[in-house]
Design a protein around this nucleic acid. Structure first.
Length: 521
RNA sequence: GCUCCCUUCGUCUAGGGGUUAGGACGCCAGGUUUUCAUCCUGGUAACAGGGGUUCGAAUCCCCUAGGGAGUACCA
């Protein structure tokens, strides 16, 4: 039995465990959503576990509501966690602030093993050193080259150190980067990365406020939580050597790493930021957010009318592709098709136009009944009353013309109200001298037709045009102008049927009155 | 400045020594339509530059340039 187990690959391969570890300092950026998504896809594909860990070790950056926002946003996207602050799990708590007591013992362990040391340099002293180095066009690095000249336990007797700490002198714990060596790392996306330790600095692991820094907490928790794969943004790549060294210092096996390419702004240079969204008119956050301190509002994809599946689909394709020509993927399909090997290395520019296209693809796939239900909500929010039985046909006629449900209303206002104005260009082109007379004649016929529904109306229109020897385009466009106010929109007989006989006749006479006034002047 | 990462149409990308360098978005044109949109057809448009290696480089190597990230007692 033991032999079998040892030879069986499934037994040898630990279950995949990944985590998404945001800092609750504000709304979750769409880049963060993509990181969470890739983690989720990877976990699900391998039958593994997806963990949410809140990295709130910086007490000064706490933002009320941010953690709830993160969970709500990811739930909206269909990204669910097996272990999280909300669900609990075998490694609870999942909030680093609640794990505070844990980190000190690990920090102490590194001090005892000689991998870390106490440092008493004040922030001001360090700042001065950095400035001075900068003035010489050099970079100050707290490492083997400088640590011997600084105020730390490496240069003090045990008694001195003990006394300082006993006095309550603020201190930090720094990692002692090994001298003259090379760190070799294998990234699942980037391959081998090699760095000389001379370029690394003795990062602070434990802050003077008694909290660990990201670096320590992240390694300790990833180890304790048995994380097998760390999938995170490329901005972490520069600290990968430190993290690898930390695992070595603890004598722990490091997880595998995958650093994802960044999301770049649609124009110009740099990574996607909130400002770009404001400037170019698209959301950068999944959900709308109001900053609790400044009251500043940010728009969200949900509120903008995007389907979460469309948003997720778009995000999935920004930096990854299946290697086929398929572009529309359900979450299940993404789970099956995803692979870290096919994640690209270079940053991906976000494209708002293609994002709209994705939404349109999903809108097109929805049934008219579903769309009618969604439209009803939009109309309710706007306080617009509409006959329930007309919502389905309206959606049938409009679904191929808009990428968003709310645009069914925006682009189809004529279903709900008479034109407020008449498009000047169209009036000029379509409203002829004889139009008023023709429309009056047509109105008379419409008044009498038995069945006021599309098939009968089409027949009637054709008959009317034939009987009077008129031009189809001229009649239809003039009529459309009266009913819609412009030259756009679905089939006219459908519009007439939906708004009804009474409204149709009302719009014809009102339109004629208005237009003859205008054209006379 | 220093360290690391990256570089195919405007954008997302396929391609991994021999391809008419493919697809999608966008844009343009034509067709369909009473209009607009959808849809269909077609078009526009790319291997950053320079050196190697090779019979042959978009593909491998080097340099340059450009872009990005990091450089905190933030994550």
């Amino acid at each position: 039995m033991l032999t079998f187990a040892a030879q069986n690959k499934d037994f040898m391969t630990p279950t995949v465990r990944v985590r998404f570890a945001p800092s609750p300092t504000g709304p979750l950026h769409m880049g963060g959503v993509r990181t969470a998504l890739y983690n989720y896809l990877f976990a699900r594909q391998h039958g593994g576990t997806m963990i949410l860990r809140i990295e709130d070790t910086d007490q000064t950056r706490y933002v009320p509501g941010a953690e709830d926002y993160i969970m709500e946003a990811l739930a909206w996207c269909g990204i669910h966690f097996d272990e999280s602050p909300a669900n609990g799990g075998p490694h609870a708590p999942y909030r680093q602030s609640e794990r505070k007591a844990l980190y000190k013992q690990f920090s102490d362990r590194l001090i005892q093993s000689g991998h870390a040391y106490y440092a008493f340099d004040t922030p001001e002293e360090l700042e001065a050193l950095r400035k001075a180095a900068e003035a010489r066009k050099e970079t100050f690095i707290y490492n083997a080259a400088t640590r011997k000249t600084l105020r730390n336990s490496l240069n003090m007797s045990a008694e001195e150190v003990g006394a300082l700490i006993a006095e309550g002198t603020p201190f930090v714990v720094r990692f002692k980067i090994p001298e003259h060596s090379v760190v070799e790392m294998d990234d699942l996306i980037r391959g081998r990365v090699v760095v000389k330790t001379e370029t690394l600095d003795d990062k602070v692991l434990f802050k003077s406020d008694g909290m660990p820094t990201y670096h320590l907490a992240n390694i300790v928790d990833d180890h304790l939580m048995e994380i097998t794969h760390v999938i995170r943004g490329e901005e972490w790549l520069p600290s990968l050597p430190l993290h690898v060294l930390l695992y070595q210092a603890f004598g722990w096996e490091a997880p595998q790493f995958a650093h994802l390419p960044l999301l770049l702004r649609p124009d110009g240079n740099g990574k996607l930021s909130k400002r770009d969204g404001d400037r170019l008119g698209f959301p950068v956050f999944p959900l709308a957010w109001t900053d609790p301190f400044t009251g500043e509002k940010s728009s969200g994809y949900r509120e903008a009318g995007y389907y979460p599946v469309a948003f997720v689909n778009m995000l999935a394709l920004l930096g990854w592709n299946a290697g086929t020509e398929q572009e529309i993927f359900s979450m299940d399909e993404l789970v099956k098709a995803f692979s870290l090997e096919r994640v690209s290395k270079s940053g991906a520019r976000f494209d708002p136009a293609k994002t709209r296209w994705f939404n349109q693809q999903y809108l097109l796939k929805r049934s008219e009944e579903q769309l009618a239900e969604e439209l009803r909500i939009v109309l309710n929010n706007k306080g617009i009353k509409a006959a329930d039985d007309k919502l389905v046909p309206i959606c049938r006629l409009m679904k191929e013309r808009v990428p968003f449900v709310h645009e069914i209303y925006d682009e189809g206002r004529f279903f709900f109200e008479a034109p407020q104005s008449y498009d000047e260009q169209v009036v000029k082109k379509r409203w002829k001298e004889e139009s008023a007379t023709q429309m009056l004649q047509l109105a008379a016929v419409l008044e009498k037709v038995a069945e006021f529904e599309p098939v009968a109306l089409d027949a009637l229109l054709q008959q009317f045009i034939a009987d009077n020897g008129l031009n189809t385009g001229a009649v239809m466009n003039a009529l459309r102008l009266l009913l819609v106010g412009t030259s756009k929109g679905p089939h006219l007989s459908e519009i007439m049927w939906i708004i009804g006989r009474e409204e149709t006749l009302k719009r014809i006479s009102a339109g004629i009155a208005h237009l003859s006034q205008i054209t006379q002047n």
